[in-house]
Design a protein around this nucleic acid. Structure first.
Lengths: 211, 211
DNA sequence: GTCTATACACTGATAGAC
DNA sequence: GTCTATCAGTGTATAGAC
C-alpha cells in the first residue's frame, strides 16, 4: 500500500492543485447537484485532464465531501459573531451580518450545503447529528438566557434560529430568483446593504429588541 | 406524426396512471435531484416497468417539467390568501399560514422547486421571468399600499416577501435538518402550530402590525 | 396499451506509458 | 506527478412482440 510522503514543509504544489480543483468542484456541484455533476465537467472547469482529478481525490464522493467540509466550517465560523455578545442586539445583529456575508461571498458553497440537506444529507448526516445539534443547543441556550434577562421577547429560540438561517441563506440559495426579480442583474453593494438592513430591522423589532 | 386522441370525457385511465407516476417522480426528484434521479427508480417507486413511464412521458425532462408545473401552481394558489385581505395582519398572516401548510403537505414538491431554482432554473426560467415577476410586482404594490395607508412600517416590500418565502419554505426544504434537530422525529401537530405562531408573531411584530 | 429486450451514449474509475 | 487510452457499469430511450 502506498503511503503519502509527509514533507516537513507543506506540499504547496499539492495544496495549490487541490485548491483549484476544489474551487471548480464547488461551482459544478452547486450548479448541477451531486448527481448531475460529472468528473469530466469538473476537470474542464479546473482546466485539467479528468485523471488528474482522480489523482488528487480518488472518488467523486471524497471530492464532494471535501467541498461540503469547507462550507460547513465557514458556516460554523459565523457563530463567532454570536458568541461573546453582550445582548441580542449585538449578537443576533452580528450573526445576520456574518451569514449575509457568507451568502454573498460563498454562494456556491451555500448551495451545495442546501442541496445536501434537502436530499436527506446522505453524505454528511454525521455532521448534522453531532456538530450541528451541539451548535444549535448552545445557541438556543444563549438566546434563552437573553429572554430570561428580559432583553428580548419570549419567543422560541429554535424557530428564531430557523428564521435566521432561512432568511440569510435565501440570498445565496435562491440568488438566481432574487436576481431574476431584480431585473436580471445581481444585487449591487447598496442593494446588499438594504437587504441586510431589512432583515435586521424586521427580525430585531420582531423579537422585541430595542434599537 | 401521431396526434393524441381527444375523448369527449377525459381519459380517466390515462389520468390515473399519470397521477401515480407524477407522485412517484416528485418523490424521487426531491430526494435525488434531477441528475441523481433515474427513470428506473421512478418506475420502481411507481410500481411499473420503466418503459411504461416512457410511454406516458416521453423523456425525463418532460416528466420533470410536469412535476415542477404542479408545485408552481400550488405555490401561486397560496396567493389567494394574500388577495382581498383588508390589511397586512389578515393578508400576511393568512399567507404565512398557507405557505406553511404547503411546506407540510407538499414537502417533495417544495424541494423540487427549490432545487430547480438553486441550479439556475434551467428548465423553468420562463416561469420566473414572466409569471413570478408579475406575481411579485403585484404583491409588492399591495404591501406598498398598506405602508402608504400607515397600516405597517415602511419596510422594503421585496425583502419582506423574500423573508416570507424563505422562512416558510425552510420547514419543507430543510425539513430533514429540522427533524434531526428535533431529535430525529417529524414535527408533531402541536410543533407545527408553534412554528406557524412563531413565524407570524416575529414577522408581524417586526413590520409594525398591531396584533 | 403494456412489457421485454436491447441499442447506444456516457459515467466513474483505473492501468500503464511518459 | 501527469496524461492517454480504456474498461465495466449504468443511463436514457426505443423497437417490436404481445
Amino acid at each position: 500500500m502506498n503511503v503519502e510522503p509527509i514533507p516537513l514543509r507543506p506540499n504547496t504544489k499539492r495544496q495549490e492543485n487541490e485548491r483549484i480543483i476544489l474551487k471548480a468542484a464547488e461551482k459544478v456541484f452547486a450548479e448541477a447537484g451531486y448527481g448531475g455533476a460529472t468528473m469530466q465537467l469538473i476537470a474542464d472547469v479546473a482546466g485539467r485532464p479528468k485523471a488528474n482529478i482522480h489523482y488528487y481525490f480518488q472518488t467523486k464522493e471524497q471530492l464532494y465531501r471535501r467541498v461540503v467540509d469547507r462550507i460547513f466550517k465557514i458556516w460554523l465560523q459565523a457563530a463567532d459573531a454570536f458568541d461573546g455578545a453582550k445582548g441580542p442586539a449585538e449578537g443576533i445583529g452580528a450573526y445576520i451580518d456574518a451569514k449575509m456575508e457568507i451568502s454573498r461571498k460563498h454562494p456556491h458553497g451555500s448551495k451545495v450545503w442546501a442541496s445536501e440537506v434537502m436530499h436527506g444529507a446522505p453524505i454528511i448526516q454525521d455532521y448534522l447529528e453531532v456538530k450541528l445539534v451541539e451548535w444549535t443547543k448552545d445557541r438556543a441556550e444563549a438566546i434563552q438566557n437573553w429572554i430570561d434577562q428580559g432583553l428580548m421577547d419570549p419567543i422560541s429560540p429554535r424557530h428564531l434560529l430557523y428564521m435566521l438561517w432561512a432568511t440569510t441563506q435565501h440570498y445565496a440559495d435562491f440568488g438566481h430568483q432574487v436576481e431574476t426579480l431584480n431585473g436580471g442583474a445581481p444585487l449591487t453593494d447598496a442593494q446588499w446593504q438594504e437587504a441586510k438592513a431589512s432583515v435586521k430591522m424586521i427580525v430585531l423589532k420582531g423579537i422585541g429588541v430595542p434599537r
